[in-house]
Every structure is written in C-alpha cells, then in structure tokens.
Simulated assay, not measured.
Amino acid sequence: MTRFTAAELEAARDRLVPDVVADGLRVLFCGINPGLMSAATGHHFARPGNRFWPVLHRSGFTPRLLEPAEQRELLTYGLGVTNVVARATARADELTAEEYVAGGRELSARVTRLEPRWLAVVGVMAYRAAFGDRGAAVGPQEATVGGARVWVLPNPSGLNAHWTAAAMAEEFARLRRAAERGPDGSGRVRLGDHRQ
C-alpha cells in the first residue's frame, strides 16, 4: 500500500472519488463521503482499518477479499459504490446538515438514473441526515430512494466500535440474501419486473 504524508493527505481534501456504477446493479453501496485516503488513492473505503472490503467478502457478496484498488471488479458481481456527499474530508463530522440534504437529493437522482434494485447506505446517521428519517435503524427501510429498495447498514469505519466485523458481516449477509431473491421472493425475476 502506498504511504502518504500528512501533507499529501491534506492536499486530497475536497477531492472527488469517481463512483463505481453501472445501470441495473443488484446493490449500490453508498458511503457517507470519501475520507482523505480514499481521495488520495481514488479508491473507495481505502483507509486501513476500514472493514468494508473484508465484510463484503465475509458476507458472501464477493468470492474473495478485494483490495480497494480492485473496486471496478464489483461491477462483475452486480455491485457498485457511491457516496451521499461527494467531497472528501478527514472526518464525516466535518460535513454540514445542508450537505447531507443536498447529497440525499443528488443520490436520489443518481439512483433513479441507474435503477439498482437495492440502495445500501453504510451509516444510519448518514441515512437519517440525508433523508430526514430520524427513526431509521439498521436494516431494510419502508421508504424507497429513486425507486430502489433501501437497506441501512452499519458504518464499516474502524472507528465504529458498536459493531464487530462478525456482526457487521451478518447484517451485510441479510442484505445479500434479500438481493438474491427476485421481487416475488422466489430467487428469480418475473417477466415484466425488470426495467427496460
């Protein structure tokens, strides 16, 4: 892994990290916003200690542990990555309430355009702030975003001590099982259910 100086990381502040997306994904994972390491490398969830990639593998979404630099491989599994807020910061608490709300609107438009089956927001506080749902909890949501079903996942940051990697992988696996089922619950998509 490339080592960055504090100055190089600081220079990455406010940079954008390109989305890893395609039309019709099974699941579009949505982070809060890129950290400085992600902005410096151009790879989502790149900070050492972030548990996104190990949990994604442990939950069965990927057949092997992917490195952040292999993020484009997610597309081959019908998965993608975006963020609620595009600009990079050292900490999520640097974002304003207005940025979350604007990010929620932009995310909804992106989801409408891309038509994933599921939007998986990693971080309940980010979901609450972006969509004004103060009562949201980890798990499937009643509300949809841009036509996609929504699942709120625990934040995979190493700073989130409330969730162990094992418990986090269980929640990701619940989403994986739901995403594998077709709209009728059978595991296959009925004719007429797919989007043109």
Results as ranks from 00 to 15, higher is better:
E142L: 13
L9R: 12
A120E: 07
A97L: 04
P34H: 04
T76S: 15
P63G: 15
L107T: 01
V122Y: 05
V27P: 07
A126K: 03
T41M: 01
R3N: 07
A12F: 01
H43G: 01
A161Q: 03
V138I: 11
L36F: 12
P183R: 15
D184A: 15
E73N: 11
R64E: 13
N83V: 03
E99W: 02
R195I: 13
R174C: 04
T96W: 00
G60M: 14
E180I: 00
Q196R: 12
R51Q: 02
A86D: 12
V122W: 01
E70A: 14
A126D: 03
F29R: 02
M1S: 12
G31F: 00
M1P: 14
T112S: 09
N83E: 15
H194N: 11
L153W: 06
W151M: 13
R113T: 09
L114H: 02
E98K: 03
E115C: 11
L119N: 07
D184C: 13
R47N: 05
A88D: 12
V111P: 00
A92G: 14
T82V: 09
M37F: 13
V124K: 06
G146E: 08
E180L: 13
V85C: 07
G187H: 04
A90C: 03
E99G: 00
R181K: 13
V138M: 09
V55Y: 06
L9I: 03
V21W: 08
M1I: 03
R91W: 13
R26M: 01
A137Q: 14
T164Q: 00
M168K: 02
A22T: 12
E67F: 04
G123S: 06
P34S: 05
R117D: 11
N33H: 05
L191Q: 15
T2N: 08
V20I: 14
V150S: 11
R195W: 13
W118A: 03
R134Y: 10
V122A: 15
R13W: 02
G104Q: 04
A39D: 06
E73R: 15
L9P: 10
G147I: 08
E170G: 00
T62N: 14
V27F: 02
R188Q: 09
R64C: 06
A86C: 07
H44E: 09
E180P: 00
C30D: 00
L95M: 04
R128E: 08
H43A: 09
M125Y: 11
L114G: 10
R134L: 15
L75R: 15
T2K: 10
A143S: 13
A130H: 03
V85L: 03
P116L: 05
V145P: 06
A179L: 07
A88Y: 12
G147P: 11
A169V: 04
W118G: 06
L95G: 01
R188M: 08
H44L: 07
A39K: 05
T164R: 02
E142W: 14
